[in-house]
């Protein structure tokens, strides 16, 4: 699967730009910076030339990895550390959504990414581990810690997942 035509590229923009934006926003807590990251990611995709993605999932995983890395590099850059964004678009969350987002944003960024990929994109722990190049155990424990910090709010009513958690899954 190549990005071989404008139509092909536009399709990718339609399908994945929001996902990239969400990951970037969760990492940087700023809509303006998130927009810049989306632009950077698509530039990387275009500049990657005839990169052959085996299928859509492969492309998606690549975009996730590149987005996270761009965010890491962005946060580290001297310029970003010494400047503040000029304008910030406000997302009109409800009170409840804002409360959840505020809690999520307090987590370290790698936790946020795992929470996003697990809850929003619906990836399994195994898949997240593969995408991020980490062990399942790492993903498992980070998801667990993240959820703990979120005061078990997000997974209310959720079934147990792969790991065994005392009092929650053990009947």
């Amino acid at each position: 699967m190549f990005i071989q035509s404008k139509e092909n590229y536009n399709q990718v923009v339609e399908e994945f730009s929001n996902m990239i934006y969400r990951i970037a926003y969760q990492n940087l807590s700023n809509t303006t910076d998130a927009e810049d990251i989306v632009q950077e990611v698509f530039l990387s995709l275009l500049k990657s030339g005839k990169r052959d993605f085996s299928d859509k999932e492969h492309l998606k995983a690549w975009l996730i990895k590149v987005t996270i890395n761009k965010c890491i590099n962005f946060r580290k850059s001297f310029w970003v550390q010494k400047t503040v964004p000029l304008e910030e678009q406000v997302i009109s969350y409800t009170d409840e959504e804002k409360t959840v987002m505020d809690e999520v944003m307090k987590l370290p960024s790698d936790y946020r990414n795992i929470i996003y990929l697990y809850y929003y994109e619906g990836y399994t722990i195994k898949e997240i581990a593969e995408i991020l190049g980490k062990k399942q155990n790492t993903i498992n424990s980070k998801l667990q810690r993240g959820r703990k910090k979120l005061r078990a709010e997000l997974e209310k009513g959720e079934p147990c997942y792969e790991e065994k958690q005392l009092h929650k899954c053990n009947g």
Binding site: N18, Q39, E96, E97, L154, K156, E158
Partner: peptide, 22 residues
């Protein structure tokens, strides 16, 4: 506060058409 609130918040965290056109 539930998982659904996170999902709906994420749904709203999206680019508009103008940004996509860019």
């Amino acid at each position: 506060m539930k998982k659904n609130s996170y999902i709906s918040a994420m749904d709203k965290t999206a680019l508009n058409d103008k940004q996509k056109d860019k």
